[in-house]
Design a binder for these strands. Structure first.
Lengths: 228, 228
DNA sequence: ACCTGAACACCGTTCAAGT
DNA sequence: ACCTGAACACCGTTCAAGT
């Protein structure tokens, strides 16, 4: 169970930043974000809540460190494939990293990490686009568009999958409201909207973004055709 | 000020669902989501916290009603313009509705409303796409892609604008980390990434999605060319 | 019928005091 | 130097009792 440094015999020599984040992520997976408290985390570490504040100025600080750690799971992108496939691969890797932890997207969306993993990911995405010939400004905006879509999608995906409270896993109230009303376009869309094939939903949106970027690239700067 | 039923003379006849949501949105604007508590809302209504539970089973229920009310501000779409302009207009209207309240995107993202305004908005977007010739499944997936991007973007926009805690309004730590490291692609993107012209960022992503949909429409079903 | 009072079981955070 | 104990100022939610 105890994974990292100093398994501890007599005095546990307990708290360090990295190990605390590990335990916090395990607790997140078993309890969910709403039940992850500083007190419960302290219990898991064999310590009182106040001791956590020697390593994290605030709970938000802890959550930021957790978000940053989640992005560490993103593997370095394979160098093969064209820019479209590499960009899509990076977006998929981000979704996968967020899905890897319960409420992962909520944790990520609620923080603003500027850690090394976050910067590395942003740098990689920007690099794929710049090397494909996109202007710096377009590369930056494309990064934001892809990340914002991915976070928005995964937020929705994890919200829909959790047993929550009302009408999420159970589409009955929505179905009823739709069929009784005048929302006939929505009725046609319902089978897809209530589908749980979130990968298909994600791929659809991702394809739209990539297509849009391809069109922008072809209409814009067509300098350096061919090349690497 | 008192809008709905029974303005009340002697005894305020105080609580009703609709007025409570109004007051909650006002309180949200002045305090922010983190400081919006059931007790403070009760104070604003001249009532004790327990009384709120006669109208809302839970705080989450209240927040869902607030999210639903926010979408009521979305005006009916103008009938002029082609499907691309109408779709873009609806996405812009949603962003505007979320921006209209402090932490609006966070409130919306944290809930799962199936109220009339949410359904009407979804029905309208789906209708624009179906009438443009998209298959039901594509219309549904396009709705989700546009909404998820819009929510993700606005979440980011409101997070960046709030005076928060660390390195959000102040890009110094990020700038330093970037310049000291080997993230040279990110350095090129920095001026755009730290720009506060969020409308430009939003429009860029929205254009990508619309371009992608146009390509899909032209490659896919080209039945019923011309005509309304 | 609708609200109050009071409680239950918690929170995040701080800080003197111990070791 | 690092952690405990104990407190401060709160939370969301429930429910008997009042009116």
């Amino acid at each position: 169970m105890s994974s990292t440094s100093s398994p501890g015999r007599g005095r546990p020599a307990r708290l360090d930043r990295s190990g605390t984040v590990d335990t916090a992520l395990e607790l997140l997976d078993s309890l969910g974000l709403d039940d992850l408290t500083m007190r419960r985390l302290a219990d898991s570490l064999g310590v009182r809540a106040g001791a956590l504040y020697r390593h994290f100025a605030t709970k938000r600080d802890l959550l930021t460190a957790m978000a940053e750690r989640m992005l560490a799971d993103i593997p370095a992108p394979r160098a093969d494939g064209d820019w479209e496939e590499r960009l899509a691969g990076l977006a998929r890797a981000m979704r996968t990293a967020l899905l890897a932890h319960r409420d992962g997207a909520r944790v990520y969306a609620g923080t603003h990490s500027t850690g090394a993993h976050t910067l590395r990911f942003s740098d990689t995405v920007t690099g794929v686009l710049r090397e494909a010939g996109f202007a710096d400004e377009d590369a930056a905006r494309a990064l934001m568009a892809v990340v914002n879509f991915t976070v928005g999608h995964t937020l929705e995906e994890q919200a829909a999958l959790r047993p929550g409270d009302e009408g999420t896993a159970d589409p009955e109230p929505l179905r009823q409201a739709v069929e009784s009303g005048t929302f006939h376009h929505l009725v046609a869309a319902l089978p897809t909207l209530t589908s749980t094939d979130f990968t298909a939903h994600f791929e659809f949106g991702l394809r739209l973004l990539v297509h849009g970027l391809r069109a922008l690239r072809e209409s814009g700067t067509q300098r350096d055709p061919g090349g690497v």
